[in-house]
Design a protein around this nucleic acid. Sequence first.
DNA 1: CCGGAAATTGGTTGTTCGAGGCAACGAAGC
DNA 2: GCTTCGTTGCCTCGAACAACCAATTTCCGG
Lengths: 153, 153
Amino acid sequence: MTTAVGAEVDRAELLGELEREVGVMIGRIRRLLRERARTVHEELQSSTYLLLSWLDTRGPLRASEISETFGIDKGAISRQVQHLIELGLVDRAPDPDDGRATLLSASETARTRLAAVKEASRLWLDQRLDDLPDEDLAAFVGLLGRYNVALGV
Amino acid sequence: MTTAVGAEVDRAELLGELEREVGVMIGRIRRLLRERARTVHEELQSSTYLLLSWLDTRGPLRASEISETFGIDKGAISRQVQHLIELGLVDRAPDPDDGRATLLSASETARTRLAAVKEASRLWLDQRLDDLPDEDLAAFVGLLGRYNVALGV
DNA sequence: CCGGAAATTGGTTGTTCGAGGCAACGAAGC
DNA sequence: GCTTCGTTGCCTCGAACAACCAATTTCCGG
């Protein structure tokens, strides 16, 4: 009755399961991010923390690139950046190649604090994933990246 | 200089990368969910879609269980459920074992529509992940579940 | 060529609404 | 009485949408 598409059905089920797990993850991750954001700076918002973290590792970027990466409205990005600058966590510099654009980067203060917070959260998560071999973890990160690409098209 | 902790450093880097990918994912997934929610019902909100989908597959549940699973305030859940009931997408039944509790489940309408939407989105995602073997996909889903457990502790 | 409109792109701001946190509450169970 | 399930009020955050300014590139007639 299941015809010859047994494998297909399995894949469908997998994709369904994927969706559900993603749903659960979103809820849980939100809480975490809020705490972490607060640790970096008293009045840093959770979503802004992600942006800052991204800037920290992905070097100077223009606002429009960030908007594209996260799939979020540029207005929202603009406000978040503004907030980050007020808090002294982001530096702004004119783009030498394009007078309209501005290049954003994490400030020294931000880098220092982020390093501390990330080290702490790394330990926290590492503890909870201690039975997960490095290879599996690497695979997970790789697959997650692959998944993100698929979502971004 | 890096002493003997080469592997440790790698793992730290992996966990950092994980965090960044998760950040990107959150942004992108949100957009997707909004579209998908709209497809199920004109005025279904994105977060509520997740709840409904969960109810669909995880059978009748009480509100407090959902709140716990997603790590979201029970007040928020209460409102979402209310909305779902107004739309006729969720059925409510008193819990025979506990007079205080209510058991929630996806209505027949919801099940039908969800099936259609999920089939469509399954195809969509499947296309974009067509070069990803079933085993890798299975591994990804498994690891994601594992990750969620780690987050939930 | 060249000067200058017209369309494009980067970013900001106003407005609105969705979504969740917190807290106070009523109701049912223990 | 005290805890647990759920609802409700209040507030804040965050993102969409759209209108807007400024710099820039395109293109067109002279």
